[in-house]
Design a protein around this nucleic acid. Structure first.
Ligand SMILES: [Zn+2]
Ligand SMILES: [Zn+2]
Ligand SMILES: [Zn+2]
Ligand SMILES: [Zn+2]
Lengths: 129, 129
DNA sequence: TGTAAAGTCTATACCTAGTATAGGGTCAAC
DNA sequence: GTTGACCCTATACTAGGTATAGACTTTACA
């Protein structure tokens, strides 16, 4: 299969696939006579793995580490478990930050509900502080 | 005051201040004989305004719009109010996304609590799906 | 007064995870 | 043989900074 088909089947854009290859995340595949990339079912599986990881917001470097780990089937998987755990901690932290931000924004918003003139705007006044 | 002092008083790094100036966010100031930037109290106020806005996660373009609006004291402030409101909507949305991600991560994490071998790792197995 | 250190200047490269071009080559159908 | 769909590489761009390099200015101290 050529890159366009892989793109449709995986849901990754063509540029993204080539980008992953350049980053060393997605193995460089065979080429046709005309220098077209030729993929098979295992390419699709590999790409879906990457997509799953990205949907968890793993960075490219982290995904590389996972792929490295996958290549040593008899080693301990603790690094995998730790990575996921650490991500959960980070996400929890980020949620807390955004909740705080939301409160601040809502205080801002309630400082000027009606339309006033700019010089009387409660939002701008809060921002000046 | 020179840029180092403004940096300390504002909490923005020197490079950030110069970056804001280049972006047209922070007015280019007077220069000393030796071409050093010279600021005054109003520069500090302006920079603090920008910092407040950034702490609300307003983009540079949005801050520029706010500054434009501030320059028309007699116009309606509705664009300001709308901007803050829209941000709150966006933040709420983002929180919801992260909450979902957190649930997924927690399911992942509980799929492999103990340390197994990589080939038996529950996390990796979930990622393969 | 000389010099060393600290501060500042511009310009440029780098970061993430892609996206969007430009300018060209390949391949199939008609 | 030409059109159109597809593919190739290389490069520039995004946001909001951060981090240099290499040069200049100012300050402090002996
Ligand atoms: Zn992470
Ligand atoms: Zn208002
Ligand atoms: Zn916004
Ligand atoms: Zn595991």
């Amino acid at each position: 299969m050529k890159i366009g088909e892989l793109s449709k089947k995986s849901g990754c854009s063509i540029q993204t696939i080539r980008f992953y290859e350049k980053q060393g995340l997605f193995e460089a595949c065979n080429r046709s006579e005309g220098n077209y990339r030729i993929y098979d079912a295992s390419s699709l599986r590999a790409l879906r793995f990457i997509k799953q990881c990205r949907s968890l917001d793993l960075t490219i470097i982290e995904i590389k580490q996972l792929l490295d780990t996958k290549n040593n089937p008899n080693k301990s998987c603790s690094s995998v478990n730790n990575l996921i755990h650490q991500h959960m901690v980070d996400v929890t932290h980020r949620i807390a930050e955004l909740e705080e931000l939301k409160i601040t924004l809502s205080e801002m918003a309630s400082a000027c509900t009606d339309n006033r003139k700019v010089k009387e705007c409660g939002v701008l006044q809060l921002l000046e502080e």
